[in-house]
C-alpha cells in the first residue's frame, strides 16, 4: 500500500516510533519501501535511515495476509500526518 508523507518534518523519529509500535503486533514481517530501497518497519533506525522527507511516496508491504488490517492502520496513521 502506498502513502505520501505529509508531515513538514518528514518521517522523523517520533513518527517512526509510532509505526514501530503498530508493527510489533504483526504476525509476519512488515517492509517499508522507498525508491526500491526496502527496510524493516519494526526498526526506528531502519525507517529513519531511508530519509523520507515531506512529499516522499512510500510503500508498506506485509509478508503475511493476516497483517492486512495492521497495514491499513499504518496507512491511516501516515495519512493523518502521524497525529501532528
Amino acid at each position: 500500500m502506498n502513502v505520501n508523507i505529509k508531515n513538514d518534518l518528514g518521517l522523523h523519529a517520533r513518527a517512526a516510533a509510532k509505526i514501530v509500535n503498530l508493527v510489533v503486533h504483526a504476525k509476519g514481517k512488515i517492509w517499508l519501501i522507498k525508491d526500491g530501497e526496502k527496510v524493516d518497519a519494526s526498526s526506528i533506525i531502519d525507517i529513519l535511515s531511508l530519509g523520507c522527507s515531506k512529499g516522499t511516496e512510500v510503500t508498506f508491504e506485509a509478508e503475511s495476509n493476516t497483517d492486512f488490517d495492521l497495514l491499513r492502520n499504518i496507512i491511516i496513521l501516515a495519512e493523518n500526518g502521524f497525529g501532528e
Binding site: L9, G10, L11, H12, A13, I45, L48, S49, G51, C52, S53
Partner: peptide, 21 residues
Amino acid sequence: DIKVMFHNISDAYLKERSDDI
C-alpha cells in the same frame, strides 16, 4: 555504521536524527 547510513540522507532535519541515536 548507523551514522554512515544517515550521512547519505539529503533532508537536513532527518539527517540530524542520528543525534537521537
